[in-house]
Amino acid sequence: MINQQLALLRREIWEHRSIWVTPVAVATVVTFLAIAVVVAVGAFGEAMNADIGKIADMTAPENVRRAALAASLVGNTSVFVMAMWFLTIFYCLDALYAERKDKSILFWRSLPITDAETVISKLLVVFIAIPLATFAAVVVSHLLNLIIVSIWLATEGANPGRMIWGAVPLFDTWAAVLSILLALPIWLAPLLGWFLFVSAWAKSGPLLRAVLPIAVLPILEYIVFKTWVLGEAILTRLRMDNIPLFDGMKNANFDEDELRSMLTENLSLVSWLDYGAFLTSVEVWAGLIVCGVFAGGAVYLRRYRDDS
């Protein structure tokens, strides 16, 4: 059972190379950007005849450096999150469509694997494999970026060991990043379930068939009932800041005192995340149920569809 799921997962990664190619591509671009920034800042310092590295080394206190480093890592991560958002959606649209388009479905179905097991493997890709692949790329990208900055600081005569590695809250940031990467597909679950269903159902053009109802139905609802329930529900899911994991941050008012205390204390991103709110959120669980219903529909279609 577990071996079979692992084989199915491996199969998904062979077929959908974008699962790892996308994060690797983003990591490459981000790393080149980091090099470009370092070169630009170095050139700026030279032009201004200022020793930027040394100035930073002398002036910034440790907790500020810590906050600044965490902020830069989060900024870096946001590019990965955006890429993952698109990757996951396009994966779902292709997951059960490609095998019908290239007719390989008859081969897959000639093996002793149930349709439910196949669809479960696709869900595991969405909820686990893609977030983990993205997380691995984020970690490598963070390390590369910090190494690049360290090398530059060292050439500027500053002490990167103290400035960077002594201050950067790496594990705290990574724990927060992993939490967010895992929470994102769960938050998007009802939409992802719908996309997976369409990929099992559409005879052609799954993207259009998936997006059109999402766009048109809320408008119809508004015209007919003068309500905006469906539209609100869909838009809520599309905005990442609505994930209940961020509830704590939303309710906090970031006034001057709070911001100052954040910088004077040691900053921890994980402590900002509201795991309790996420796990007890009705919206999260309702979304997973909707996803389950659509996934069940996809299993049904794969099993009962008869194209002859």
Partner: peptide, 26 residues
């Protein structure tokens, strides 16, 4: 076992991957 038509093997897969996959599922 069945062969439904000649063209049904997935075109993206490598021969070694195909053997791996069938070995671990059949």
């Amino acid at each position: 076992c069945f062969i439904a038509d000649v063209a049904v093997l997935p075109r993206w897969i490598r021969v070694s991957q195909l053997l791996d996959f069938v070995a671990s599922t059949h």
